[in-house]
Design a protein around this nucleic acid. Structure first.
Lengths: 333, 333
RNA sequence: AGACACCUGGUAAG
DNA sequence: CTTACCAGGTGTCT
């Protein structure tokens, strides 16, 4: 199971008391810092420590990071630097070389991907890492030691319970691969779509499958489906971003119309009870509470025009932003 | 004789129900607000309305204001913004540009001075304006219209003596009034669009006024207007947020259809050349390049269903977020 | 010239 | 405690 973590750095005054942190969940994070450092050193150190702390797992790792400097350094620029002897475009030496080289070494044989997320945009993982990084910086500012956190199970220095880091050979580290620990910790992440239900939302583009348009003729024309869709979706997403479950509840209850999986017309009440619509109403509400979950399906809409159509529309969180997708199926005549 | 007035703004929740007010004495003050706005929008609007309401007098004007943001914007920063194309020091667009520009225009040829007064420090004029601004905000919070006050003798909309009511021309009605900052909102609430007369949207700018539905019959049915709208709008907004002009150009060129102000059907090429559509295509492209602009109008959509409709849809940046608004006008039969 | 991040300061509104 | 607005600055790369 892919590990998803956010890494962030902070430097008060820049340069100044600096901190770094990575965060997976409340039980799995790590922070540190220095009396003096730069913002970019913090950002780099967060990634480096994350790589080292998860090196013993065989799992792929996805790093959410708001620093284009870090991401570009690792994924784009480093190859060129190595060839040119760690010189920049202007001929001067690359800064923070030590950290960069350590990251490069820690990447060896690992399956790691980076994702840029906008800073201070409400992304929960990024915010959690941000808080802890600044907390560490603030601690150093006051001459104290920061709360380092539990780190990752099995990592050196980890305070996780059964760690038992003893003998057993730190083994893996390099490729080897097989390993396959029991990986009980994975589950966590309460949000991921359950997958149990009918609405398979697998991997890439899992939209509700529909080869036909059942019930299209039975579905009465809705008064203002387009307006409802536009308004609702914009407002719901707004509310979700604002993390405002009350608004959500309000928005979802009145005057909402939809069409179930079988094409039947549903009012708000039926919709809430509908199996097919659970991913809409419940999903959005759950999302508002838990702040994670990757897909929200909003509506099946039917409208009758020169060509009658069924529109399925949903939103997915990508790179920290909500994007709207839709599929329209049209039956002329 | 120099006019001395205090101007103040208020926003409950910020952003939230917002009010503005200026005050000279108990017989000479004016207040207004919006369902949603920021504290700074309120502060700016108070100054703007004061300037407009006293424009017909030849008198010098002294404005007491507790917002350094407002005073510095007008007296210090605006010169630089104009030179740099309304960009801030960090290169991002200046916010509340419309209000700022209106104030700048209203300052033309006037003798105006500003004086900073500390807020909530017991200054009588400031307190009086503060009370009325908050009163207006509170009114909008409760869904009511605020007490606008008598305004200034001789000002448009003034209830001072000489009004000479009656006669034709409800004409005047300059911006200033109610609605939302720099426009009106109308849309939003999940309410029933079926209600007559609900579409009152007066408009200072952007919003296409539409009392009739010209060209509705002439406009042919569009193949997939809804789908185009949803996808285009979501993707365009996403591209705008990502500041990705290439994507924008790509998105705008193919398969885009719209309806001009006269109701004529336009393909992408005609649309780009259309006067009415300039706010759509050019506006979005310019936005992508310059990264500023507060309103993006995306489309006039026509679809014919059980009830033929014209949908006007646009996005506005409010409090840093893009929100979608729409207006639908339906002609049954 | 551009991008991202990290801050420091000020005022107001809640 | 938060958001709404602005001005200065550094850390880093292309």
């Amino acid at each position: 199971m892919t590990i998803i973590a956010a890494a962030d750095g902070s430097a008060l005054g820049n340069p100044g008391p600096a901190g770094w942190a990575w965060y997976i969940d409340d039980n799995t994070w790590h922070a540190g810092g220095w009396k003096r450092g730069t913002n970019n050193q913090g950002e780099l150190m967060a990634v480096l420590d994350l790589l080292r702390s998860t090196a013993h797992t065989g799992e792929p790792l996805r790093i959410l990071c708001d620093s284009q400097y870090v991401i570009n350094s690792v994924t784009k620029w480093m190859k060129g630097w190595k060839k040119k002897g760690w010189k920049k475009a202007d001929g001067k030496p690359v800064l923070n070389q030590d950290l960069l080289k350590d990251i490069d070494a820690a990447l060896e044989g690992r399956d790691v991907s980076f994702e840029w997320v906008k800073g201070h945009a409400g992304h929960p993982l990024n915010e959690a890492a941000d808080d802890r990084a600044r907390g560490a910086a603030t601690a150093y500012q006051g001459g104290k030691e920061p709360d380092a956190g539990p780190s990752y199970p099995g990592a050196a220095g980890s305070t996780h319970d059964g760690a038992a880091s003893g003998s057993g050979a730190a083994a893996g580290q390099r490729g080897a691969g097989t390993g396959t620990p029991a990986s009980s910790s994975a589950a966590a992440r309460g949000g991921e779509p359950g997958r149990g239900g009918d609405t398979a939302s697998s991997g890439t583009d899992a939209e509700p499958s529909g080869d036909s348009l059942p019930g299209l003729d039975e579905a009465a024309g809705l008064a203002t489906p387009v307006g409802v869709a536009l308004t609702l979706e914009a407002e719901v997403m707004d509310a979700v971003e604002r993390q405002d479950p009350e608004t959500l509840r309000f928005l979802l209850s009145p005057s909402f119309r939809g069409v179930g999986a079988a094409g039947e017309l549903l009012d708000a009440a039926s919709l809430a009870a509908s199996e097919a619509a659970r991913s809409t109403v419940d999903g959005v509400e759950r999302l508002a509470e838990e702040l994670h979950g990757e897909v929200v399906q909003l509506a099946y809409l039917v409208f009758r025009g020169p060509a009658s159509s069924v529109i399925t529309s949903w939103w997915r969180r990508e790179s920290g932003r909500w994007r709207c997708f839709f599929r329209q199926e049209t039956a002329r005549g």
